[in-house]
Computed example of a mutant assay.
Amino acid sequence: MKTLIIDDEKRSRHLLSNLIAEHCPSIEEVYEASDLKLGVDVIKTEHPDIVFLDIEMPNQSGLDILEYFPEKVDFKIIFVTAYNQYAIEAFKLSAIDYLLKPVDITELKEAITKAKETIEAHNLSGQLNKLRNSFRQLSMDKIALEIPKGILFASHSDIIYFEANGMYTNVQLAEGKQKIICKPLKHFVVQLSDNAMFFKCHRSYFINLKYVEELVRDDGDYLLMSNQKRIPISKSKHNQFLEIVKETFM
């Protein structure tokens, strides 16, 4: 991790820098700045993870740091000062911690540990959000099927039909494989309700219209799928199916 010390007192900067070097191995780089403006320049160029910030400085108070970052603060602030009356103001700015001069080694370690944990939690949250976005993109074309030994990600276009099997569902894939999924048929009907290619033709079947080869009017109407599977079409769905055919192909 990188850190920056902003303090107008050179001796205070060097003392804190030495304490960090001796007792805080997680800090790999330490930068220094003698006032807030110079410190802001370092933040923008070096992007430190933690900023140790003196509050009482001649030109500008450390409490004014947020004026330079109105939109986003992507570093953790630990205020360091000899005057504890600033504590309440400091924490109103969401400081990670507050250290009084002279800095106590134990309190310094605890403050850095707290900052590190917050940074790691933030990074994990960011990684999870990226993963969520990736899965959202994936879900636009694929569906997650919970098989007994894991999860199978199948493209919508590779599914020929879903078949009810009690509290489970048989999924027939275009490549000839059939999977037993640990979800009832209703789950997939709801999940794919916005996908116009899927049609519930019968209480036990939810089909991909892409794979319908023929509507057969013989011994009760049924749909002949591309894998030669005969799937019944209920009377209540018959007219709806014909309407879809007319709208699409005629």
Rank of each mutant, 00 (worst) to 15 (best):
A82C: 04
A111F: 04
G62P: 08
I55F: 04
E107Q: 15
D74V: 09
K101A: 05
F52E: 07
D64M: 10
N123S: 10
E67G: 02
F79A: 06
I119Q: 01
A87C: 13
A82G: 14
V42K: 00
H122C: 03
E110Q: 15
L63G: 07
V42S: 04
D97S: 08
K44L: 12
I77T: 12
V103H: 03
V42P: 01
G62Q: 04
V51D: 06
A111Q: 03
G39C: 08
I105M: 08
G39R: 04
V73L: 11
A87Q: 11
Q60N: 05
K37W: 03
E46W: 00
K109Q: 15
P102L: 10
T118F: 03
D35Q: 01
I50R: 00
I50Y: 00
K101V: 06
V103T: 03
D97H: 04
T118K: 07
L93M: 10
K101H: 06
P102T: 14
L99Y: 06
F79R: 05
E117H: 12
F79L: 04
K44G: 11
L66Y: 09
F75G: 03
I43E: 01
G62L: 02
L63H: 05
K37D: 14
V80D: 07
F69A: 10
A95N: 04
Y83G: 11
T113P: 00
L63K: 10
S94Y: 09
D41F: 05
L53H: 00
E46C: 10
K116A: 10
G62D: 12
E89C: 01
F69Q: 09
D49P: 00
L38Q: 15
V40C: 12
E56I: 04
I50G: 00
D41E: 15
Q60D: 12
T81K: 01
A115W: 01
K116I: 03
E46I: 01
D104V: 08
N123T: 07
Q60C: 14
I119V: 11
E117S: 13
V73R: 05
E89S: 15
P70D: 10
L100D: 13
K101N: 13
D41T: 14
L93H: 09
V80Q: 02
